[in-house]
Design a protein around this nucleic acid. Structure first.
Lengths: 222, 222
DNA sequence: CCGATCACTTACCAGCGTTCACTTACCGGC
DNA sequence: GCCGGTAAGTGAACGCTGGTAAGTGATCGG
């Protein structure tokens, strides 16, 4: 059932191996259950084939374990978006592509996304780790790109670069969350209701949002 | 401390009184703790001055209780937004005002907002109650207003009314969530970091988002 | 005054994150 | 070859959680 592996005790220098196995098991369980509080420390320990306290030899709290797992996948987020931000094309075009990539990544990682983008990071995160946070790097890159675009006249300068970048972030952030929670629920529970609210298709909404952001921040006289 | 009231047993027909006291205590605790899973059934019972199982005489589960509390405040959401949707002014202007009202309401009810707009409603909600849901009413009104605006030529018709309305929803939804969770955290934890990411002001971001939505869905040749 | 009903309570369950005290197995040094 | 130190891991428990089953008393209509 939950696949208890026949784990034999590791050799003396090999303790780190368990850490990796815990991360992997947590990642799998998170993907299976879909939410991090449906995954218990006992579940994880059982799947790894180890007793619950052993988890705490490698992670201080459950939150830190969860965050470590999400953070691992989070590197893929940076790897996908940063090249676009720093890549070719004019600023608006890059923004359009990074926006779409953001939404796609969020939907592909629907179980992890809320942990990373809704909750707060665990208290005891080192500043060093924090500084390398892909989310912060992307945000910084986004602000920089918006600023560049404004200087070039490719992005309208009605608002500050920060406010503009955050507005774009808000749009894709909201889109990911609506699509991954509200849309699915509405479609299954509202089908035969007497208030038939139209529900847009996933791709349709993504394109609408991206094009809207594109238009909204194009220079005044298009 | 947690204010145990000296509750004496109620008379025979007055059972509903406890229900109201539970709702009130839950509302207060929710506001104090800021998140619904920091409030336990035992906390609520203690504050009301009653034993924990008594809660279950009036609410099936904790989720339903939480949702009932949020739902109560949710009526205020409908009361604030529906008149704007059905009010005066052209479609774009009404959309602008309803968008700003949405964000303001979300920020004013930051502890309740995620319960209503992120989690799923509890399983056993009657269809009747569901149909009167202010959120659904507002969404339906929004779609209708967008459709009207498109017919009048006041809103561009590149996308379907549903996708357009959802895109607007995504923008304000994302804005509320970023402002109420990420912004505060960043401001306190990122102040002295070596990656000084600019953080926009609350009002500044709201105005940027609203104006961006306004421009994005204005007709092609402004 | 009696029996039904309402308004609760006491005692408990399984499961949670987490901690403490303890054992087991390996490894370098004598 | 054994010995001490240490890394790796365990069993039992703590205090908490949401939730339930069964019982207790007051109150009310007849």
């Amino acid at each position: 059932m939950t696949s208890v592996r026949n784990r034999s005790r590791l050799r003396k220098g090999e303790g780190e191996q368990l850490r990796r196995e815990i991360l992997a098991a947590t990642r799998d369980l998170l993907a299976e259950k879909g939410s991090h509080d449906l995954v218990s420390i006992r579940d994880i320990a059982h799947r790894v084939g180890v007793s619950p306290p052993s988890i705490y030899l490698h992670f201080e709290t459950k939150d830190q374990l969860t965050y470590a797992v999400c953070r691992e996948a989070f590197e893929g987020f940076g790897a996908r978006l940063l090249p676009i931000l720093a890549g070719e094309g004019d600023a608006l075009d890059r923004l359009r592509r990074v926006g779409e990539a953001y939404i796609r990544w969020g939907l592909d990682n629907a179980a992890l996304y809320p942990v990373l983008f809704l909750g707060e990071p665990p208290e005891s995160m080192e500043h060093e780790v924090m500084a390398g946070d892909p989310g912060l790097l992307v945000l910084a890159g986004l602000v920089a790109l918006v600023r560049l675009g404004m200087d070039e006249g490719a992005i309208r300068g009605d608002s500050t670069p920060e406010a503009t970048a955050w507005a774009m972030w808000a749009a894709v952030h909201g889109t990911v969350l609506l699509l991954s929670s509200k849309r699915e629920w509405m479609q299954s529970h509202l089908a035969e209701a007497d208030t038939p609210i139209g529900i847009p298709g996933v791709d349709e909404l993504i394109e609408t949002v991206i094009e809207a952001v594109f238009r909204a921040f194009s220079p005044a006289d298009g």
